[in-house]
């Protein structure tokens, strides 16, 4: 009987013992009987078509895995297709600092709009402030920044949203984690002092850890947690608006979405370079000129107009301890790389 033959052949096939002739015979039986075909497909659903549908999930997972491999020191810091700006960073002295660049764009601008209504503390350009939250956490807020939290803060949760730059000294509370949403990432604090810089007009979101430990998750990769150790810095880059959109073939993503490279840390002082702003120090730490401009504009509430595009590839390092705008500009001018003129609140740089 055909059916019995079918089962015999099926058993041989699943056991990997069916000869080619038997396989052909089985195929014949399956073609003749739709119902047997259905049973056959319960065992051999057929084809790898289902596997090929969409690689985006694996790519996303790989980007997080890649970052993890770099943080663990298993991959070289410099990936092959480094862009100019990143390559300069590798030249900086090796240190305990770590930089992750996520090539992801508009998603975090979108996120900022979802900020729930609640209390907001805001600074204008050229101003900085210091405050203590209801739970005892101390916050230093840099220029043109804001923190927002829901009315339930310190009662139901300790969560807030940051735009711009802030330094946190978080009051320890093991039961209620302190969570900061900054752009497209979440920083979960486990009792700690650290700095976050997350301005929407700048290409990176940076987290620098001084003491304690923090855990960072990207909103689009909730499963992957990145833990920072003191002295480490994590920078998530937003410059490319091509997020891992579904349907991007594996090969088009040669440049990883997450990159790590080493950054300079403060070697002399007690606090990291990144948090020096709260002591009134304007710091350029091997910054390219675009970032220098961004920092000056926020620090002194001026507009900088760049008339010499070559400056974009020039980097600057220096610390200005409570100095005036003209002192800073004169010092930059003394490097011989640029000239400036100041008209009202606009600085023209050549």
């Amino acid at each position: 009987m055909k059916e019995e033959r079918f089962y015999t052949l099926m058993k041989r096939l699943t056991a990997g013992k069916a000869s080619e002739k038997e396989q052909a015979e089985l195929q014949q039986l399956v073609q003749e009987d739709e119902q047997l075909a259905l049973l056959y497909r319960e065992f051999f659903p057929g084809g790898e078509a289902a596997e090929h549908d969409d690689d985006s999930e694996a790519l996303l997972a790989y980007s997080a895995h890649y970052a993890r491999m770099q943080i663990a020191g298993l991959f070289d810091a410099a990936p092959e297709p480094a862009r100019g700006r990143q390559r300069r960073m590798y030249l900086l002295p090796a240190a305990a600092c770590v930089l992750v660049l996520l090539l992801a764009g508009g998603w975090w601008f979108g996120l900022r709009e979802k900020t729930p209504a609640g209390r907001e503390v805001k600074t204008q350009k050229g101003a900085r402030t210091h405050l203590v939250l209801a739970d005892g956490t101390a916050v230093w807020l840099n220029a043109n920044s804001s923190i927002t939290h829901s009315p339930g803060f310190n009662r139901t949760n300790r969560e807030l949203t940051l735009t711009g730059e802030a330094y946190f000294k978080v009051a320890p509370d093991a039961d209620r984690p302190f969570i900061i949403q900054a752009g497209g990432l979440k920083v979960k604090v486990l009792g700690t002092t650290f700095n976050i810089r997350s301005y929407p007009d700048e290409p990176n979101i940076e987290t620098t850890l001084e003491t304690g430990s923090v855990e960072i998750t990207l909103d689009d990769q909730p499963g992957n947690k990145i833990q920072l150790k003191p002295g480490q810095k994590l920078s998530v880059d937003n410059t490319t608006s091509k997020m891992a959109a579904p349907g991007i073939p594996a090969d088009s993503l040669e440049a990883p979405m997450l990159l790590l490279s080493k950054m300079r840390v403060d070697t002399a002082g007690n606090s990291t370079v990144d948090a020096a702003w709260k002591e009134g120090k304007l710091v350029f730490d091997g910054d390219d000129f675009q970032r220098v401009v961004s920092k000056i504009e926020k620090w002194y509430n001026v507009t900088v107009v760049l008339e010499n595009k070559n400056l974009y590839t020039t980097s600057f390092t220096g610390v200005f301890d409570n100095k005036s705008l003209t002192t800073v500009l004169n010092t930059l001018q003394e490097t011989g790389k640029l000239a400036y003129r100041l008209e009202n609140d606009t600085v023209y740089v050549r």
Binding site: E34, Q35, A37, L38, L39, E42, A50
Partner: peptide, 20 residues
């Protein structure tokens, strides 16, 4: 389990498929 790929015939035997 992922549902095995089947052409149109599966609509005819939907009940059988469900039983499987």
């Amino acid at each position: 389990f992922g549902s095995p790929h089947t052409p149109e015939e599966e609509t005819i035997h939907r009940e059988l498929k469900r039983n499987f």
